[in-house]
C-alpha cells in the first residue's frame, strides 16, 4: 500500500488509540486503566480553567529556568575548564558526584535546604549541568589541533578563532548534549515536584491523582508533560541549530 508517510503515521497512532480504548473497555475499571476518550474529556474540562495554565506555566517556568541556568553555567565553566586545567581538576569530583548521586537523594536534600518552591529549578540544574559541562569540554577538545596550530602561526585573533574554529566543533556536542539533557530535566523536575508538591506544579497534580486514585487525571497530566516537554525541546533545539555558523564573509555582511 503506497500511502503518504504522514497519513500512515496518523493511521498507526489511531490504531493504537483504538487498541487502548478497547482494552480499557474490556477492563471496565477507570482506576486500573482509563481509555483515551476519557482522558480527552478530562483534558477538555481542564483547558478552560485558569489553574490548568497556571500549573503548566509554573512547572515550565521552573524547569526551563533550571535548564537555562545549567546550560549557561555548563558552557561557561566548560570553556574555563578547557582553558585552565586546574579548574577542570577542581570541578571533576563535583561533576562526578552530580552525575552519580540519585535524583531522589538530591530532592530530599534540596527540600531541607531550599524548601519545595524552587525545588524543580534546583533539580533540573543538577541534572543538566554535568551533561552540558562535559559535552562542552568534549566539543572544545575535538577542535582540530592542526587548524589551531595554523591559527597560531597566522596569529588569528582570539574571537575569530572562537567563532570559526572552536564553535563549529562545539555545536554538534552541545546539540547532542541538549537532546539528552532536555528530556532528563523534565523527568527529574516533575519527579521532584511529585515529592515536594509545590503549589501550581504538574508534579503536585500527579501526586493528587495518586491520592484520589484519579487515573484519568494522571493520564491527562502525563499527556500534558509529553506535549509541553516536547515543545520545549523542539524550541531549544531549533534555536541551537539556527545559531549562525557563518563564514568570515557572511559574518561581515551581517
Amino acid at each position: 500500500m503506497n500511502l503518504h508517510p504522514l497519513f500512515r503515521k496518523t493511521l498507526v497512532i489511531f490504531l493504537w488509540l483504538l487498541i487502548w480504548e478497547a482494552i480499557s473497555q474490556t477492563v471496565g475499571n477507570s482506576i486500573l486503566l482509563v481509555g483515551p476518550i476519557n482522558v480527552m474529556y478530562t483534558l477538555a474540562a481542564q483547558i478552560p480553567t485558569a489553574d490548568f495554565w497556571k500549573t503548566i506555566f509554573g512547572s515550565l517556568g521552573k524547569i526551563s529556568l533550571g535548564f537555562c541556568l545549567a546550560f549557561l553555567s555548563g558552557i561557561f565553566l566548560g570553556i574555563l575548564a578547557f582553558r585552565f586545567s586546574f579548574l577542570k581538576e577542581l570541578l571533576a569530583p563535583l561533576v562526578s558526584l552530580m552525575k552519580s548521586v540519585p535524583v531522589a537523594s538530591f530532592v530530599i536534600l534540596a527540600l531541607i535546604w531550599i524548601g519545595s518552591k524552587q525545588l524543580s529549578v534546583f533539580i533540573s540544574f543538577m541534572v543538566v549541568f554535568p551533561i552540558i559541562y562535559l559535552n562542552t569540554l568534549a566539543g572544545l577538545r575535538s577542535t582540530d589541533p592542526a587548524l589551531l596550530e595554523m591559527s597560531q602561526v597566522f596569529r588569528i585573533p582570539f574571537f575569530r578563532k572562537i567563532r570559526f574554529l572552536y564553535l563549529p566543533s562545539l555545536m554538534p556536542y552541545l546539540i547532542s548534549g541538549c537532546q539528552v539533557a532536555l528530556g532528563m530535566s523534565w523527568k527529574s523536575g516533575v519527579a521532584a515536584e511529585v515529592i515536594g508538591t509545590p503549589a501550581y506544579s504538574i508534579g503536585k497534580q500527579l501526586y493528587l491523582s495518586k491520592t484520589w486514585l484519579d487515573t484519568g487525571n494522571l493520564f491527562c497530566w502525563t499527556l500534558v508533560i509529553i506535549l509541553v516537554s516536547s515543545a520545549f525541546e523542539r524550541l531549544v533545539l531549533f534555536l541551537l541549530k539556527h545559531i549562525p555558523q557563518g563564514t568570515p564573509y557572511k559574518e561581515e555582511k551581517t
Binding site: E149, M150, T247, P248
Partner: peptide
C-alpha cells in the same frame, strides 16, 4: 590545514 567547510575566499579572509 584549510577549513574544509569554508570556501577558498573564506579561508583567506580568516587569516
Amino acid at each position: 590545514r584549510l577549513c574544509e567547510s569554508f570556501s577558498p575566499m573564506d579561508n583567506l579572509r580568516l587569516v
